[in-house]
Simulated assay, not measured.
Amino acid sequence: MSTDTDQTATGGSSFGRVSRTKDVAFRWLTLGAALFGILALAVLLANVVVDAVGWLNWGFLTGMPSFSNPYQAGFFPAIVGSIALMALIALITFPLGVGAAIYLEEYASDGYLTRFIQLNIANLAGVPSVVYGLLGLGLFVGLLNIGFGTLLVAGFTVGLLILPIIIISAQEAIRSVPDSQRQASYGMGATKWQTIRNVVLPRAMPGILTGTILALGRAIGETAPLIMIGAPTAVFGVPNSLLSKISAMPMQIYTWADQPEMEFQYGVVAAGVVTLLVILLSINSIAILIRNRYQQRDS
């Protein structure tokens, strides 16, 4: 009897040592993978920043674009165009995406039509961006005749690109709100809309904003849809209406990288990339501050 007990104890301790060894090995493996990604990104950013030294100055940020003299190249119209484009995309996609998510999660019945819509939204989130560019070209330029490369066409086209992402992230955030809180609101006599407005949306808003931040981060770096809708590679003025032609920062950087001069391919392009990253991080920081305010108010 004691022999069986000793064997069982020995086997259990051996199993425990193997499990702890695997746990430690897996932890170090995941840590190494994370550090490798961070290190690779840091090296790339450092390389770009070093190339941008001497080129990123006030004249570059406020000047007009040039394709003949790299020392006179400016980025101002592309900066204003990208910021205006992001503002328009946010105004279009945020209410549409959140509204669609509220309907699918709170109002739609769990039938075949709802499942069909959900499946298509998930599929649309993985469609290549060039396909949305073709859609924008055919729908907004060809059918509606809004014009090639205008701010409105670019906003609608890139907005369609990120709309499925916002819908899916908003659905997940709304779904994460405990159903007990909804039932408590109904028990207090609140209507369905009052429950959604006062209970569901405030608690889901941090998750909704997180998904929106990620979607806008993808949108600001898109080039293929802008090429397909005929956005100019460079403009020499800022947009003053929704029908003004615009050029975004990725378009301008792509055009500079195609120039034969080494100063364009390295110095000017690097300065444009650093500017794009700074503006992207600034927009994300503002959105994160808004999200954190919702979290603090909810807590």
Rank of each mutant, 00 (worst) to 15 (best):
A122P: 02
L137P: 09
A87I: 15
L91W: 13
T195D: 10
V80N: 04
L160W: 01
F116P: 00
F75Q: 06
A173R: 02
T191C: 07
L134K: 00
V177D: 02
E172T: 10
G126N: 10
R175A: 14
A100Q: 11
I174Q: 00
I89F: 09
R115K: 12
N120T: 05
G149Y: 01
F156N: 03
G149S: 01
R115I: 07
Y186Q: 14
A90M: 14
I117L: 13
A173N: 05
S82R: 08
F148I: 09
P95N: 08
I121G: 05
L124A: 15
M86H: 10
A173G: 03
V153S: 06
V158R: 02
S185T: 09
I196Y: 06
I102P: 08
L163M: 03
G99K: 01
S180K: 02
D110E: 15
A100M: 15
P164A: 06
G126C: 09
R182W: 03
D110S: 14
F148S: 13
L124N: 11
S82P: 14
I121H: 05
Q181M: 14
W193A: 11
L160N: 00
L85Y: 13
A101S: 12
A125G: 07
G126L: 06
L113T: 12
G142F: 06
S176L: 08
F76D: 03
A184S: 12
S176R: 08
L139N: 05
N120R: 02
L139P: 10
L135H: 04
L88F: 15
F75K: 03
S129R: 00
S185R: 06
Q194P: 10
L139W: 10
A108N: 07
I165N: 12
A125F: 02
Y107C: 06
I83P: 09
N123D: 09
V80K: 04
G138W: 06
L139V: 15
L85K: 04
S169E: 13
L139C: 06
L135F: 15
F75H: 05
P128L: 09
R115A: 13
G187Q: 08
Q118A: 12
L96N: 04
G149H: 01
Q194Y: 01
L96P: 04
T114Y: 01
L119W: 06
I79V: 15
T114D: 08
G126D: 12
S169P: 07
G74N: 11
E105Q: 05
P164Q: 06
N145F: 05
